[in-house]
Amino acid sequence: MLRYVLTRALSLGLSLVVASLVIFAMIEVIPGDPASFMLGLNAQPEAVAALRDDLGLNGSLVTRYLDWVGGLMTGDFGISYTYRVPVAELVLERLQVSLPLALYALGLSTLIAIPVGMFAAARQGRTSDYAIMGATQLGIAIPNFWFAMLLVMLFAVQLRWFSAGGFPGWDEGFWLAMKALTLPAVALALPQASILARVMRSSLLDVLHQDYMRTARAKGLSIAQATRHHALRNALIPVLTIIGLQFSFLLAGAIIIENVFFLPGLGRLIFQAITQRDLVVVESVVMLLVFAVILVTFLIDVAYAVVDPRLRRRR
């Protein structure tokens, strides 16, 4: 088990090195000089020269790469060109919104999807199964920003249970902040839960037809007992994969929902940075997101080994 975790960790490290090289190279191959690119066409040569200095663009490729990576590792992500503040500060501030939002949405989606998927699988081919499958189809098809607006109209405008947008910050109290994240989390969770419920259903159906389920029934387990003791853990293996993918997506892919609810999240930060040609921010945030995705993949790999003994090789 330890050995498995170590090999996975090693591959995590290697992936990070490769990813940092690719991101660094991409910024480098942008035609022309990053400084003049950032300043636009009508920039003064002196301003460009000053920015080049600022950005440390005058060193060799190798020293610049090492400086950048070294900075990342010590938490120094550089200074944002548009905001004139350290990128680390910006990112940290945004993460306080994006990370809880992603976890909230993922938690909701998992809590809804797994029981719903199980229920549909248990009632395979009956009306309730068809109803659930139809509903999830709809959940995937509905654009989530539109669903978000419906939520706002109902819960914020009509019922006045939630505010229509904005984020008060965590200093205003945990529950108040969570409340502000609730509607966005629901809007994000709907399509994810729909996908996850379908995966859970089909994965459980696969498992229910396995020979060992028949063995369990022959031992005297009822259908419910056999499902609980033997099917669930096996059925969760593919579900874990999807959960991992969804988390990575939710962390940075929530930009539309962030816009609908005026949330200062990572998605908006990177979007603004791109439109303002703030390459320092783009470079660092992309690297950070890559790190998050690779880390989640690693955690999912470890979770696989916890669930599936065939992956823990006995020494």
Binding site: Y212, T215, R217, A218, G220, H230, N234
Partner: peptide, 29 residues
């Protein structure tokens, strides 16, 4: 009924199957 049959299966009437490679749950000892 089904409950009564559950009490019979595995206790008074047991069964083994053809394909031992897949007859056991892979994630349980």
């Amino acid at each position: 009924d089904e409950d009564a049959m559950c009490a019979i299966r595995g206790r008074r009437v047991s069964m083994i199957f053809q394909e031992p490679m897949t007859a056991l749950n892979p994630v349980k000892t």
